[in-house]
Design a protein around this nucleic acid. Sequence first.
DNA 1: GATCGGTGATGACAAAAGTCATCGCGAACC
DNA 2: GGTTCGCGATGACTTTTGTCATCACCGATC
Lengths: 201, 201
Amino acid sequence: MIRVLLAEDQGMVRGALATLLGLEEDIEVVGEAADGEEALVVAERTRPDVALLDIEMPRRNGIDTAAELRRTLPDCRVIILTTFGRPGYLRSAMEAGASAFLVKDSPARELAAAIRRVLAGERVIDPALAAAALSAGPNPLSPREREALTAAADGSTIGDVARKLHLSEGTVRNYLSAAIRKTGARNRIEAVRAAQRQGWL
Amino acid sequence: MIRVLLAEDQGMVRGALATLLGLEEDIEVVGEAADGEEALVVAERTRPDVALLDIEMPRRNGIDTAAELRRTLPDCRVIILTTFGRPGYLRSAMEAGASAFLVKDSPARELAAAIRRVLAGERVIDPALAAAALSAGPNPLSPREREALTAAADGSTIGDVARKLHLSEGTVRNYLSAAIRKTGARNRIEAVRAAQRQGWL
DNA sequence: GATCGGTGATGACAAAAGTCATCGCGAACC
DNA sequence: GGTTCGCGATGACTTTTGTCATCACCGATC
């Protein structure tokens, strides 16, 4: 039996996926978690063969959780399961040590198939997405530029961002200006959206 | 047997939910659709007792689809199943004739329960969400203000929006200014986010 | 018939955002 | 030792955004 841990914040989706996997005769869902922190705790206790992690989760995201899991349970394979097939997400997932990257758009039967292939030592990645991730190149934003852009994403003014990051307003303006230039955007809103589309935030 | 149509754009979630419902001995999934348009076509052919509609779908959203379905198949009950429990969504869903409003956060077993209750003539709505929808009041934005805000949401400049809506730049500025005031925001970004949070766009 | 709200527009003005050159500091790299 | 890059800051400047008063037209409503 393949022992699976399932981490996904939407209860209905988590329940449905658990049911789906439970129907496979060689798969057993040994743990469920509604966020990344919980996933780590449950993984420690249940020692799964593979962890299915959503990226967008409260408290600790799936990428972070994957990296931590690789440290604490090196024998546990990680499959990232996400709504958005963003190039930067795929890159981060691979750097965090994930064995597979699935988008929720794909058919349900691919999930069990991916689990079996990962356990057999394979890596499972959509070729088109891999190409997009490689052609897009790495994240060009510096850490501070990323922070400034993230802090500005909710409509905060330059003054707000400066206070949040303990910087002068001029410095924040410079970082945002650089982020706008690097993303090829015309203003901060476009820059935020472009960066999010690439998975750079 | 209760005949169910399931419309949800994410293949994996759709497949898992279909499997989940198929396990219930009194429920039968007679049709699946990946968007609103497809849902209408499949509903016409399969004549379900109840249609489960996601809101965020390509081509035609779940609210629109619900309203159209109430016209073409008045005997078919509609259940809205959504990621976001936004007050405005609930309001729109009810106005479109939905019998139930479920968020994907809730446990999986509530889905089958809601289907049975709806078929028994009940309405199923989270009381806390209903209270939020009522206390939030109706959408204060005029149609043009909503259009201007929506058009500006992707980082378009005032000039872009003016061209899109065939208006003068001054008029667009006025609409955005009004939208900012009505949402209690400090700029257009906050206004967009506030309006989205309320389900006003 | 008056009032009100939505639509569309203009002009003037203030505030915020964005650009650019320039500086100093420290760490990494060849 | 020189170069490069990220970080942090300042000042000057332009452009964009947001506010406000005011106008006109239309349709609904009382």
